[in-house]
Amino acid sequence: MRSLHSHRFRNPLYIQKVFFALLLLATSITVQAQPAVEMADQFRADGKIRVVVGVIVIIFAGLLVYMIRLDRKVKKLEEDQNPS
């Protein structure tokens, strides 16, 4: 416990120094942490992601159009059964 009461911790200048050192360390960690996580950055930069999105959208749009057509076919059957 002696060390806690030593003169260094009472000195505001020392505390300030430690504080800034920690702040610097924290910012350097966060700055470094960003590129450390591998993401598909190059793939996106090349614009190839658009090709993938394009293919998926065409397929899903096709499936959704089919859903709409299916829905209307059922509706037609319903109307044939219950002409109102």
């Binding site: 996580v37 998926i56 959208v57 959704l64 709409i68």
Partner: peptide, 25 residues
């Protein structure tokens, strides 16, 4: 629903996401 599905696919693949370890994309 049809519009939202398409939005989900486009924005889901092209939107920005946080860079997380292990999970990545």
């Amino acid at each position: 629903t049809a519009v939202l599905i398409i939005y989900t696919l486009v924005a889901g693949l092209m939107g920005t996401v946080p860079r997380l370890v292990v999970l990545n994309e």
